[in-house]
Nucleic acid binder design. Sequence first.
DNA 1: TTAACATATGAATGTTGTATCATATGTATG
DNA 2: CATACATATGATACAACATTCATATGTTAA
Lengths: 114, 114
Amino acid sequence: MAQKHDHSEVIREVVSQLPSDELLCDLGDLFKLFGDTTRIKILYSLFESELCVCAISELLKMEQSAISHQLKILKDAKLVGCRRQGRQNIYFLADDHVRTIIDQGFEHLTETDE
Amino acid sequence: MAQKHDHSEVIREVVSQLPSDELLCDLGDLFKLFGDTTRIKILYSLFESELCVCAISELLKMEQSAISHQLKILKDAKLVGCRRQGRQNIYFLADDHVRTIIDQGFEHLTETDE
DNA sequence: TTAACATATGAATGTTGTATCATATGTATG
DNA sequence: CATACATATGATACAACATTCATATGTTAA
């Protein structure tokens, strides 16, 4: 027996337009990367200049270990790259898309002055 | 005593370019909203049509309560709006910026075919 | 006004994720 | 090669968050 309101039609149509579950998960995972203040700060810093771990650590006044862990996450996700220079590891933005996405969020905040 | 490598200059410059801590936190909080598969799915569904809680629940095959909780989060963040219609609550996208941000992430995924 | 429908919400639970601590690895320099 | 420097990493502890369950609130219809 059908309920009072039957949504099956709308549902079928919406479902047909929905991207695959895998893609939706990937999308969530991507945004999750930007959903942490520390990582946002790191990325923002890298907008200005490539930096070694030590510099980021001093810059954000956080433990070197915490920064290293976050950099690993960003590197695994290929949002940042890394090269050796002497005994330092220099990190840099791997992708200009990162800037675009963050800027987009920035605009949303300023425009809606939330 | 200075260490081998002194970063103070770069640091000072980067710091001067960094947005306020508050803004960076807000930015993180904003992206956090997109960093959950359920919420992404809800938002994506609302791209297609405004929907009542019940429909979203059926659509995503998730409990009504879980959907309600997530909708509350999205509503508090003003990403979706809501209106009464009979005994249903119809939710809809409150802001086209949402679409832009998600599309941006989508592009990143497809372009880098991560 | 009682019953069924639609949604919201508080509490509890389980999971995820971040920072810390301790320590290992890698590199340069004396 | 021993030491200091620079970073990475595993384990732990803790905090944040999502889902579930039970139930409350609100709405319509008989």
